[in-house]
């Protein structure tokens, strides 16, 4: 579906990603994990043409999308859910959904919005409230629903679990897995809740300082104790055999 090859990008003159190649297969959940400052968000920004791309190629279904303005990329079927501020706080939930369906026709948008309230029943309850009055988890559901509004070929999710309570983050993760399983949507997800993301993901990339340190099967990365403890804060505990636990190590401390 999406192929990024030899990508170098950054902001202004600052280079963040170095010669990076990833591949997002169709109808699969591809997970990008890594410590803070690795360039995970920059990768999504480069795809969306928000960051500066210096060299390399970005292909969506074998046609180049490099240099296409952001709003046109949305029309090409890429749906990007930013990390922060992904809903319009001063509009109602209904308006948010309609706004996300900006490129659809009126009746299409209406149908799609009703479909969304069926997929996410929590939104139906609050359909007329301002998005700013929703709780963190509900907002994230709304953000995902907004991403789904425009029948995306590909969804780019940027750290959906940011500042959510663990139990709510877990629920959001389950929704993402459900989207792949039931709706068959291709997803590229950047996540710092690495363990859970790797459990539900199909393919995984470990990004460190703008370079790919690991690529391959997602759950297999969980069995690489060295990478896990060094970059993801997941400690391998020998007593429990194959079980792992999440430690609260500072992720960024090793990476400088």
């Amino acid at each position: 579906m999406l192929t990024v090859s030899n990508l170098s990008s950054g902001y202004g003159k600052l280079k963040v990603l170095y010669d990076l190649s990833i591949d997002v297969p169709e109808k699969e959940l591809t997970v990008v994990v890594g410590p803070n400052g690795a360039g995970k968000t920059t990768l999504l920004c480069s795809i969306m043409n928000i960051a500066n791309v210096f060299s390399g190629e970005i292909l969506l279904q074998d046609s180049s999308i490099k240099g296409i303005p952001t709003h046109n990329l949305a029309q090409k079927g890429i749906s990007y859910v930013p990390q922060m501020g992904n809903v319009f706080a001063e509009l109602t939930v209904m308006d948010n959904l309609h706004m996300a369906g900006y490129m659809l026709s009126k009746s299409e948008a209406k149908d799609k919005a009703e479909q969304m309230t069926e997929i996410f029943p929590v939104l139906k309850k609050f359909i007329h409230r301002l998005a700013g009055t929703l709780s963190g988890g509900e907002r994230r559901m709304l953000a995902i629903a907004m991403g789904l509004m425009k029948n995306p070929k590909l969804m780019l999710l940027d750290e959906l679990s940011t500042d959510l309570a663990p139990i709510i983050a877990e629920r959001v993760m389950m929704e993402v897995a459900r989207m792949r399983d039931e709706l068959g949507i291709t997803i590229l997800m950047v996540e710092q809740m690495a363990k859970r993301a790797l459990e539900i993901g199909d393919t995984a990339y470990l990004l460190v300082s703008g370079e790919v340190k690991y690529s391959g099967d997602a759950s297999a990365l969980l069995h690489e104790p060295e990478l896990c403890s060094m970059y993801l804060g997941i400690k391998h505990s020998s007593d429990k055999g194959k079980e792992f636990e999440l430690s609260v190590m500072d992720e960024g401390s090793e990476d400088n």
Binding site: M48, I50, H71, A74, P82, L91, M103, M146
Partner: peptide, 15 residues
């Protein structure tokens, strides 16, 4: 209002 609220999201929504 969408633009006032969040430029990036507005852009990503195709505006």
């Amino acid at each position: 209002r969408m633009l006032r609220d969040n430029e990036l999201s507005a852009n990503a929504a195709g505006l």
